[in-house]
Amino acid sequence: MAWIYLLIGSLFEIGWAIGLKMSDGFSKPLITSITVVLILLSFYCFTKALKEIDIGTGYAIFTGIGAAGTAIVGMTFLGDSANLGKVFFIALLITGIIGLKLSASKGILQEEENKGTSSEQESEEVMTPQEVEIG
């Protein structure tokens, strides 16, 4: 459930990041109000998630989804330029988010380091060095 809260909070975050830009330094009342509501919703969900998830992990995933999402929305709807570099960093973000999620889930399962469920296999492929698992 904590991870669901984290995901929902991240989606609200994309909304307020866009709203923040459109509010021109909080000078437009309607957009500012919507932005503030989204910020509150986003942090409510995030705090719920933090009861179970490590703060470093939770925050990285929260902002990672927010950053990737904001860039995608910017390129798709707000006329921001799209280029290979952006796509690369968005891919890097998604790699980090998925990898961190999988290794965090493993942590919850009492660090069964070398058991290798199917989800762990995936994260190992991204990660590569085998000695990390052993050491």
Partner: peptide
């Protein structure tokens, strides 16, 4: 993985 996210952002 956190490094990937920070670098990506």
């Amino acid at each position: 993985f956190i490094g990937c996210i920070v670098a990506g952002v």
